[in-house]
Design a protein around this nucleic acid. Structure first.
Lengths: 235, 235
DNA sequence: CGCCTCGTTGAAGGTGGTCAATTCGAGTGG
DNA sequence: CCACTCGAATTGACCACCTTCAACGAGGCG
């Protein structure tokens, strides 16, 4: 099995009670047996679309997925990235539909779960319950962090911060994820940060000239994590 | 009892499985009995501070609370607003400390719960479990919405959208919350939206001249929700 | 080869920031 | 009742970060 990701340990000591999950355990082989099927999707393919009815949800076993929300005026915003170990498709909007689309950034391997079966499992197995809760709390913390990033930092700072965060997550994700090569286009960075394609290109150019990052074979490569971190903090 | 807020109904039909909570039920009088004490706080007072150890968490019974995150460079970002029915202080960062501060926007009445006792209750009572999970999922959806708002809309659009969202929440919150008078300063709007005080003032001026909103006795007053909604959507 | 997506570059302009001075309003004390 | 104070809001002048528009280059794939 690939590294599993959301610790429960004992239910009193989960993610919400103390710090981040230390020991990986949950969403493991035993859990996987409840899947109803699997899907292999290529880079660029849709897992599901905003507004759709979701009777299934998905556990990402391998690859990167972007969650993208479309505003009333047609603008697109990537609200989160899902890495191996994440469950996607579990959120619903006020009408019971998918609040965002999910698109593969790399070739992906997904396990499908029946929606109501999954929540029965959550209800009946305290370990799954705790693991799911901790995952959602991580999602929330990440959303708040990204909100602060987008709201407060300048162009280059936003880019540096997002890259660092993704790098750190990739390092702990397993599922064949490379921690220095992120399968992103500049357009996707822009879509996540609320800035334009063109401006990302300009910033990336200067960060490349500084030897911080590179852009090879359609993926972002991190060259100098230390200075990138300093830049994200505001140096 | 004031309106309670997070439905569980049957555990298979909670917020994550279908749409938003329809029937209010959870965090009610029965739940309240587990509190260890209460606090009355005046406008402007801190409930807890970022970085602090949190052995308690809080159920907001009355009033408005802002959750504010401080970045490494000292900038402040309001990541969420808590209304009656919300539990705050349950999130922890990677080190097990509070990831943000909580400050009262109005006079507040809070119920305190022992942290580990609360999570034991979550674990043992499926209704509390479902209610808590649904609340966190609502928090997450709101965070994504606010991220899209801050990342994509223009100054006036951001303001309009946030006001509409707060208004709608206030309408369903109970706890003596007025749905057309929001206890916010322009500075707090700015802190939530990632724009400056000065610019909020300019935008508010033009929205006031258009008869959309007013600013009376230190609170924001919504005059024309309909046109405000249109403005948020992009008109 | 033609096509498409992705990335790059330039020029011009606007949205929103910065700095600083002033006013307003509520609370306090004389 | 008025003076004083302090934070919140307002206004003006200036300017820069980032957008917009447009054109072009590079690589992948039919």
């Amino acid at each position: 099995m690939d590294q599993p990701h959301y610790s429960h340990e004992s239910a009193e000591r989960g993610r919400a009670q103390r710090g981040r999950a230390a020991k990986a355990f949950e969403f493991d082989e035993e859990f996987d047996r409840h899947r109803v099927s699997e899907r292999l999707l290529a880079r660029g393919q849709r897992v599901f679309s905003q507004g759709q009815d979701l009777d299934c949800l998905y556990l990402v076993r391998r690859g990167w997925v972007a969650l993208e929300h479309v505003l009333p005026d047609g603008q697109r915003q990537i609200v989160d990235f899902a890495l191996p170990g994440a469950i996607i498709g579990h959120q619903l909007d006020a009408d019971g539909h998918a609040p965002h689309s999910a698109e593969c950034l790399s070739d992906c391997w997904l396990l499908l779960f029946n929606r109501s079966q999954f929540f029965e499992l959550v209800q009946s197995d305290p370990r799954v319950d705790a693991a799911y809760r901790n995952m959602v709390l991580d999602d929330l913390e990440r959303a708040h962090d990204q909100l602060s990033n987008v709201a407060r930092r300048s162009g280059a700072g936003k880019i540096a911060h997002l890259i660092i965060k993704l790098m750190d997550r990739a390092a702990g994700a397993g599922g064949g994820v490379d921690e220095t090569r992120l399968p992103l286009t500049q357009g996707q960075l822009a879509a996540a940060l609320g800035i334009t394609n063109v401006y990302v290109s300009r910033m990336v150019k200067s960060m490349r000239q500084d030897g911080l990052i590179a852009w090879r074979r359609g993926a972002l490569e991190v060259l100098d994590p230390k200075r990138l971190r300093a830049m994200a903090a505001g140096a």
